[in-house]
Design a protein around this nucleic acid. Sequence first.
DNA 1: GAGTTTGAAACT
DNA 2: CAGTTTCAAACTC
Length: 755
Amino acid sequence: MGDDDGVGLERESEDVDATEAGDVATDTPQRKQINTPVSNFEESPVFNYLNNLSPIAGVRSVHITQTYNSLNLASLPSVFTSPHVSTIKDSKFLRRHHLRDPSKLEFSSENVNKASKQQEVAGIFDDSSEVQNFSPVSASSKPPHLPNELSRTVTYEPVNLDSDVALCSVMQTKCIPELSGSCSTLGPSMHIDSGICQIGSEINIEGASHIDEEKEVSDCDWNNLLSDEGGLSIFESPIDSKSLNDPSQKSHEAGMNDMSFQHKESNMNEIAENHDLLVSLSSEAGDTNEIVDGELASNIQRGLRRRCLLFEMTGSRRKPLTDISNVGPITLSHSHDNILSNDKCLVPNKPKHDIRRCNLSGIGLHLNALASTSVNHKVGKYEELNTDKQPLSVFPSAVCLNPSNRQEQQKDSLVASSSEMDMLPAGEYISLVEDAGQASEDVLNEELVDNSAKKKRQKVESGGEGESCKRCKCKKSKCLKLYCECFAAGLYCVEPCACHECFNKPIHEENVLAARNQIESRNPLAFAPKVIRSSESMIDVGEESGKTPASARHKRGCNCKKSGCTKKYCECFQGGVGCSINCRCEQCKNTFGRKHGSSYIRMEVELEKDVEGEACESVIEKNLQIRTVQNGAEQNTRFGLPETPLPSDRQLIAPPLSSKSMRPPRSTFLAVESSSQEFGKLNRSQSKFKKHINAQEDEMSENLQPIMGDVQSDSPNSKRASPLHGKAGFTPGLRSSRKLILQSIPSFPSLTPKH
DNA sequence: GAGTTTGAAACT
DNA sequence: CAGTTTCAAACTC
């Protein structure tokens, strides 16, 4: 516990420092401890070690502000498997309840000192780390750009009733008369202080609790938003958002009631008065815009959220986030992402960070992702990715996933979520993540802003809505087992589902969490993405040839005997990836890549050989180097991607809700790797030669895992690699940690504190 | 829409 | 850990 808490604190402190020059850093004694050392602290072996170990650390190093600490926290547990994680998850869900608590509302309503806030928060949340996270946010008004996640944290802190009211009004206007009633409850949670994203995030949180209500509403919200181009545009461009500030415009574009806008404005004003953040926001029109967007987003998110169970896989992206934060539009996109994530994520929300995050989560395909990823689905192109980045695009998809088109839907939605990550097609996530993380974040952001609206609209109109949403037909599992696609995907079942005695609903949140925990206890990776798209090759190859590159693989591999891996019975095929060594399929005819493909087999075998023994390290280092080079930023490597990928993403799943942080890290980790690789390779032409190279790299990465202690595939023909379960000690997080070690840390520092 | 097939998930 | 059962999606008719 102590370690986790310490980490969380550190993170926060770092974040704060990065964003706000440490204004908040010294609010609490805990922080002080951490803060003082901040720079020194980072240098300390312990700090390095922590960073390496978990996505969380990575997040810190990156730009904290953007990353969602709470989420990250979840990831931390991965390293320290333990009750903590579970507690965290619980806390997340519980949070909502707490927020609802009237007493808290009172508290929130008042302008409370940071310290007081922290204290209360701490009281609310068992996890000190979370508290810390919150405190920083609250203490320092975070820049408008703060990641949604942050915003979330903020929400817990003092809440402006006004803001809440505004939101409620908005909600009501949008279609949720029901919400109005719930608004009061929501109110407390909602906090404008944080600024833009926060609102949305907060909403998300509650949204989970109110999912039932939201379901009905969500449709309306989405419809309104989507149908109303203006609304979309708002999200897309900051300018639009500004216009939103103007009540008339807002109502017009958003299609919302004037009342709601007025409330928003009033809320904004109050917030500004009350909070430093507001000041910063007011200074920048973009901020205001963001706020407005946040509100809208929140509304939207609600609708989406209903289905989000949790998967926040996303960690947070450090740089990207920061960068994004800078860009107004980006922030908006983040909010969107959040929204998306919210929609389907069971867990509270994924970080609102960037789309990237969502992407990150997406990198690894969750179970859902697999389901979603269809054969048809081709690896997203960069362009597509960009589009995905756009919040809007995400929304639509998020709104409903077509069973048939799950892949695409997931792409969009997942991008947003996560978590989720989770559902997105690997290619897209990766690309997104990489894009964001790397060099052209700004450019991307701009592009996103400009193009996102159009693309989103197109997607929305063309795609997602028309098709039916993902739905299950469970009869005996009560939708609390992985048999249920919704549950497996981290989504709550919705009306379209034909399930019987469904417990996978917000109302049964506890049951859902318990089920998840149980499953996770059995298999930490149960909710992690099954398909890992490591290479960029997929994108190129996928587009041109329609075949998945070697890099994309099903983590465990399939066990098909009769389908020849040519039908959706095969998870590999369903995920749009070729079979790999890990597969134990018979008569494999997977069109995306046969298990016995000569190239694959040879490569893997060689790699394994190399891996064994000392060579392994060299290989790993090579991989790392490659990754780093491709990524261009150490951050990615450090975090394992997470930043981009990993931390935040994986989070996709675990961090947020899952009791076991273990999972998230893993998935994220994997995702990260892939993303990094892909990133470098994106523009490469797909030649066989390249494919081989990619395959090698992929395999190398895979091989590395075993070395690292990863369970995955021990041997080519060996049984499917057991996910991570068995090796709790070596979770994805560990992998990442090791990687980090290689890169930044020569040796593995001892976990035990120095004496 | 009902029934069958299939393979993952869950159980023993 | 291996084998069996259960389950629900995917598929066929």
